[in-house]
Amino acid sequence: MSPPPPPLGRSRKRAAAQILDAALDDSELVAARAALAQGRWQAARALLARTGDDWDRRGHRVTVLALEPYSAAWAGDWLLAEPESADAAVLLALAQVRRTLRGKEKPVMAREACRTAAALAPADPTPWLGLLMLERDLGAGEEIVRLFGEVRARYADHHHAHHLMVAHLAERRSEAGPDPLHEVYDFAHWAAEQAPADSPLAILPVVAHAERYRVLAAAGHEPPDPAACGHWAGRRARQVMKAAFDWWLEWEHEGHPRRLVDLNFLAHAKVCEGRGAEAAALFHRIGDHVTPAPWSYPDRDPCPAFRAARAGALGTA
Rank of each mutant, 00 (worst) to 15 (best):
D56P: 08
A37L: 14
W248I: 01
A317D: 15
E142Q: 12
Q38L: 15
L8C: 08
S27G: 02
A208P: 06
V271D: 08
H256T: 03
L216F: 10
G234H: 09
G312Q: 11
P226C: 04
V108E: 11
P257D: 13
P3S: 12
R98G: 15
P125Y: 08
A219W: 14
W295K: 02
P298S: 09
Y213C: 03
A219P: 00
R300M: 05
V207F: 09
H253A: 11
L147E: 04
D301Y: 05
W247L: 04
L260R: 14
V108G: 00
D53Y: 06
H182V: 11
L48C: 13
A89N: 06
A228N: 00
A117E: 09
M133L: 09
A293D: 08
W128H: 15
A34D: 12
E142N: 12
V145T: 13
M109G: 00
L8A: 12
W55H: 03
R235Q: 12
M133D: 15
G59M: 07
L29S: 01
A219L: 11
G220W: 11
A279R: 03
A73H: 10
A280E: 04
I286D: 04
D299W: 01
R14C: 03
S85D: 14
I286K: 09
K270H: 14
F306S: 01
R146D: 09
E143V: 14
R236F: 00
D25I: 05
M1G: 04
L169I: 12
A267N: 05
L48H: 02
L65Q: 05
R146I: 08
A93M: 08
L67I: 05
Q18P: 00
E222F: 05
A117S: 12
L20G: 06
L131V: 10
T126L: 03
D157K: 14
D179F: 02
V30N: 02
E254T: 12
L91Y: 08
E171P: 00
W78R: 03
V207R: 02
E105Y: 02
G220R: 05
A121D: 15
E193M: 07
G130H: 06
D179G: 09
P6G: 08
F148E: 03
D186S: 10
A35D: 15
G52Q: 07
A269T: 13
E84M: 03
Y185G: 11
R102V: 11
R238C: 06
C272T: 06
H189R: 09
A17G: 14
S27I: 10
H289Q: 07
